[in-house]
Design a binder for these strands. Sequence first.
DNA 1: GCCCTGACGCAAG
DNA 2: CCTTGCGCCAGGG
Length: 96
Amino acid sequence: MVSEELHERVREIIRSIPRGRVASYGDIAALASAPTPRLVGRILSEDGHDLPWHRVLRANGTPAPGLARRQLELLRAEGVLADGEKVSMREYRWRP
DNA sequence: GCCCTGACGCAAG
DNA sequence: CCTTGCGCCAGGG
């Protein structure tokens, strides 16, 4: 199990991503001092329903397979456009 | 216990 | 585009 403290830290950071911006799993992990970006994906999968989860992408700008449709749709709704399945990180990446 | 699988990543070659 | 190596963890296909 993941420490409750880290768990909440990750959630809080994701919550602070502004509309129209995105962050990578690695970005979140770094900000939360998480041991690995994969942990972020796991936390998100089991306890991310109430978070702006769609603003979290992989480092290359592609979304998680299987949720790609919904995710890109939600992003598009807030002005984040994708080229195919890839979002331009250079353009939309959130920097605290 | 062990192996596989997950919204589980990412950088380098 | 693909593969490899390193990183890390819980639940049960």
